[in-house]
Design a protein around this nucleic acid. Structure first.
Lengths: 186, 186
DNA sequence: CCGGCTGATGTTAGTGACTAACATCAGCGA
DNA sequence: TCGCTGATGTTAGTCACTAACATCAGCCGG
């Protein structure tokens, strides 16, 4: 079983969409267009992606984050703990297909409605992180604030990273963003 | 000039919308419905609010924030500075019509797509705060991260505040959220 | 008190994201 | 090979939102 048919269709749709978005812009590209270019119907598109923006916004490496936070030392205050966890995640996850990700982030950065979506997209991750913190006795408000702040920092760093092109590695950027929250920054 | 006709229409639309959203839910209420209940056409609705969610999400007390950040002591690190500014804003702005705001926040809290919109809505405020920080010599990434983190904290606090109903005042809640970022929290 | 001017509103006709219901087709196991 | 199941297609909608153009309300100079 090389890859299921569904997985192939999904990948094809994602590639096609990314290409069209890059060529002519996100807003100027309709779902119908993507589907046609991929040789399927628009219904197939929506069976694989719940919304048009999901094609761009599904980075898929969010879920690992909560685990990393759990692995970080439990004694810290919520914000420090979350930052420590994120740093662990950065070191362990090996950020696959950087170019793929970068291309998608670039599309998102260029499209106001998608930029917004980046923050929106972190909601499930945020809840997962919150659960970890609460399980270790953190106040609920503190947990939510810490998780939200750290994820916002990550999102900002991602946008910044693809903005001034290639100067830093993504890891460096994300690390610097966390420093701002941590107190390690001047 | 008591109030211009346009302002009256806008207010009427906002009240009508808020009422209908509370009664039957945001998603179950169409713009057409709101317009009809207010005795206007749907075009009039969109002339006063750019989108359906703007009726709920326009709190309008965001713009004052950037000014308060500018008034905060310039020597602090970006995150501390932003937090200090927000505290100033909380003390000086007198949070008008709390009930109106609370009702809208409650609608937003109950509607996934709107909860997302709360974060989205802070983008212009964020940029204003970023400008203030950069003008005082902050690193661009640091400025963006600090602003985003603090605004995320505020949004979280708002949601939490209307969630466990009436226990704290909104000011208290927001202050506690800022403490988590500041380091004043255990 | 009147004709006109301007901004607020209405009408109509569209586009595009998304959904529901139902038909069909591809491929794999019995 | 038959049939079953999941992947896809078709069709017909709903709803947010927009563009173009018609109309109407209210104030302003005459």
């Amino acid at each position: 079983m090389t890859t299921t048919r569904a997985a192939r269709t999904r990948a094809l749709l994602q590639e096609t969409a990314t290409r069209l978005f890059t060529e002519q812009g996100y807003d100027a590209t309709t779902v119908e267009e993507i589907a046609a270019a991929a040789g399927v119907s628009h219904m197939t598109f929506f069976r694989h992606f719940p919304t048009k923006d999901a094609v761009v916004l599904d980075d898929g490496f969010d879920p690992a984050i909560a685990g990393a936070v759990a692995a970080a030392p439990a004694g810290l205050r919520p914000l420090a703990r979350v930052c420590a966890g994120f740093r662990l995640a950065l070191d362990h996850v090996d950020l696959p297909e950087q170019e793929q990700v970068r291309q998608r982030v670039q599309i998102a950065a260029a499209t106001p409605s998608l930029r917004v979506g980046i923050y929106a997209n972190t909601e499930t991750t945020r809840e997962a992180v919150v659960d970890v913190l609460i399980a270790d006795g953190a106040d609920e408000l503190a947990a939510r604030v810490a998780a939200a702040a750290a994820l916002a920092a990550l999102s900002v760093a991602l946008l910044e990273w693809c903005h001034d092109d290639g100067a830093d590695t993504m890891r460096t950027r994300l690390g610097a963003a966390l420093d701002v929250l941590d107190g390690s920054a001047a």
